[in-house]
Nucleic acid binder design. Sequence first.
RNA 1: GCCCCCAUCGUCUAGGGGACUAGGACGUGGCCCUUUCAAGGCCAAGACCGGGGUUCGAAUCCCCGUGGGGGCACCA
Length: 495
Amino acid sequence: MPISPVRVRFAPSPTGRFHIGGARTALYDYLIARQTSGQFILRIEDTDRKRFVSGAEEELVESLHWLGIEWDEGPDVGGPYAPYRQSERTEIYKQHAHALVESGHAYYCFCSPERLSRVRQEMQKRKQPPRYDGTCRRLDPAEALARVDAGESHVVRFKTPRQGTTTAVDLLRGPINVENATLDDFILLKSDGLPVYHLAAMVDDHLMHITHVLRGSEWLPTFPLHVLIFQAFGWEQPTWVHLSVFLNPSGKGKLSKRQTLDPKSGVKAIHVLDLQEMAYLPEAVTNWIALMGWSYDDRTEQFSMLDLIQKFSLEKLVPSPAAVNFSKLDHFNGIYIRSLSLDDLVGRLRPHFEAAGLRPTVDQLRSIAPLIQERIRTLDDAVEIAGFFFHEHVEPDPVGLIGKNMDAEQSALAAEKAHQVITAQVSMDPDVMEPALRQLAESLELSAGQLFGILRMAVTGQKVSPPLIESLEVIGKQKVLERIDRAVQLLETLP
RNA sequence: GCCCCCAUCGUCUAGGGGACUAGGACGUGGCCCUUUCAAGGCCAAGACCGGGGUUCGAAUCCCCGUGGGGGCACCA
């Protein structure tokens, strides 16, 4: 466990929507930074102008804020190693690329993209790994420099050693040995003068004094190259930690956007903001994400952000891929909803009712919230289960009004009697109402369940609802009586 | 095709040579509670991928196989 302050960075590229995989990496970064009183840096890797998506950075920022993940240095807050947007650091990368050429670790390449793809195709045809054929590697450096000075279009390639092996050490996996001969001469600087990830990220990680690099395991194949780059510069390496990928709930294949469209997949949403929109609590999402690929012990499952900061450790990360389990998110969300204070719950509920076009008052919500708190899994469920409180009329299914093991006539009679009983009560207080209605059931030789079932459908229009007696009080005497009247009418239309 | 990584219940995981009749959680099934639905309580089914080693002893270490995943761009 790192005890001295770490400097970690989350370095997404603004090329699309922000998903839970990125959120987990950012979360872990944040946790060790806070735990060690270190710094968490947000860096935007926007060196690919073709893939740039406008609004992506904004979504990222909004997502992290929502989850409660805050950074100490970044494009918006600045910091001692600014700028934190790679597109604003192009000169730095150019200098470093050229330094590598001068030290003999890289070379200029003048091959056209057309030639490159031709070479690649041929190699594939011969069932060989598609790699650069090394044409420009054999060029005389002075001659190459002259061509560059003459303005010829070029890139900078890393001169990967042809012999030997490179050992890259991952914190979770130990040493990974790779034959250098299987590595390609990767491009470091593109012909437009912008760097590629392999260069930019290494340069920035060094310049920004990053001590621990947490990133996805999709970087494992190029990991040795990154080590080689550090060695070429003569820099000390950070601690490398490769996080496993998220798999689809089935465990088959990487979690992907395409699967989201298939309801059978079990995928609810893979984008953080979609989870927010689906009315999940950020603390539930955080807890859920933290536990995919990490565990504390053999029993503890609930962790607040503070708990996580205290208890998280890189060593307990699991290197194997994890299939996401959305039913577990539902479970956590239920736990967190039930743990909310009344005021907190009311505050969080309100926007969701309003989004549904309802205008509940705080007092109304305060009386309803306790009735539904332990029955909802997401905040949106509340609108579904408790919408009837706010509707002017309910539309019960006439057949549904018939009590269990009863006919329409008996049910109508029971409803009428209930109308009388409720009318006679001076108060809607459950302590008064419940005994009165139970007594009615008894005198009608009905079970409480039979009578309550009829009234439930009459008054809520639903087969399932919050507890009936308490609901009656909230709905109010007048509306209750109206709705029962209506139910009696409906029952009388039945044969 | 080549390279890399991974491998315990359906899923997330505990386990780091004897404490394992392999523990917990989600989900599933049953029971209890109960005015519906939940919540809660109790119970149950359910896993060490296969084969070789090493060792007195292997879920734990090594090798091979198999399976799964990832990568092979002037993307990140």
